[in-house]
């Protein structure tokens, strides 16, 4: 369980989050939607403790995230963000192994090697093992990064949840890889000890893959719940300033939005 209590985050004079509270359960994929500049990414960065809020607290289970040291936190929390650019040639395998850095001192152990092999197979990048990251295409780079980040929290921890954050990771991916990636994240979140919170831009993708959606506008929560409760025409109109039509596929719970 992940809880945010009355989070206030300011940059200079501007307040980006005005006392946001929400709690996120394990085993579910929570996706945050909202217009540009609404504070989605800021909120995820506060939850992942990259940013420290001026007021309020983030709790990982019973622990106050603000008091934990970086390394301890990094063993149970991983963040997928946009594709990285590297200035130096680095083999893909070495990059994936970085995901295990918080778990070992000195040289990687047997478990670390095994985990790297497993995540690379999971994201279908094992053939790129010895290639230099800088020579990969945008989509390949992103898949390697997913493998690296999942390596960080691949195995359950005794007595603690794992936390996975997605900070707009789908940029630069084509539609096939977007869907493929979301399916893999979904499958990973099926584990009952994984708390997952992410930001996606595409409302239809959010509707299809999110268990629970959180709509944010101007640093405040507009709605939090199932896609039917959150992606209503009224909410979308007031938040995004576009007129949607909701289309349902007969016989399924699939749900599409068309914008005019």
């Amino acid at each position: 369980m992940l809880q945010a209590r009355e989070i206030v985050y300011r940059v200079g004079q501007r307040e980006l989050l005005h006392g946001v509270s929400a709690s996120f359960e394990a085993g579910r994929l929570h996706l945050i939607v909202g217009p540009n500049g609404a504070g989605k990414s800021t909120f995820v960065k506060v939850l992942s403790r990259l940013l420290r809020p001026q007021a309020g607290e983030v709790r990982y289970g019973d622990l106050d995230a603000g008091t934990q040291d970086e390394r301890t936190l990094a063993r149970q929390r991983a963040v997928l963000s946009q594709a990285l650019e590297l200035a130096f040639p680095l083999p893909v395998r070495d990059l994936v192994m970085m995901g295990r850095y918080p778990h070992f001192r000195g040289r990687p152990g047997r478990a670390d090697e095994e985990i790297c092999d497993e995540v690379m197979a999971y994201f279908d990048v094992q053939d790129m093992r010895d290639r230099s990251y800088v020579t990969l295409s945008g989509g390949e780079k992103q898949r390697v990064n997913f493998a690296r980040v999942l390596a960080q929290v691949w195995r359950p921890l005794p007595g603690a949840c794992r936390y996975l954050f997605l900070d707009e990771p789908l940029t630069f991916l084509d539609i096939r890889h977007q869907i493929d990636f979301m399916k893999k994240v979904r499958a990973f979140v099926e584990h009952h000890d994984v708390v997952a919170v992410g930001v996606v831009h595409d409302l239809n993708l959010a509707a299809r893959f999110g268990d629970r959606l959180l709509m944010i506008d101007d640093g405040r929560i507009v709605a939090f719940g199932s896609k039917e409760d959150v992606l209503t025409p009224a909410h979308i109109r007031s938040t995004f300033h576009v007129d949607p039509v909701v289309v349902r596929e007969p016989g399924t719970d699939a749900f599409h939005l068309i914008f005019h």
Binding site: D69, E70, A74, R75, R77, S81, L84, A87, Y101, Q152
Partner: peptide, 20 residues
């Protein structure tokens, strides 16, 4: 050496990997 390797992929990413 290890934290510097992590820094290769960016400051934010290094922080996510537990580097101060």
């Amino acid at each position: 050496a290890k934290p510097l390797n992590a820094l290769m992929i960016g400051e934010e990413e290094a922080i996510y990997l537990g580097v101060n």
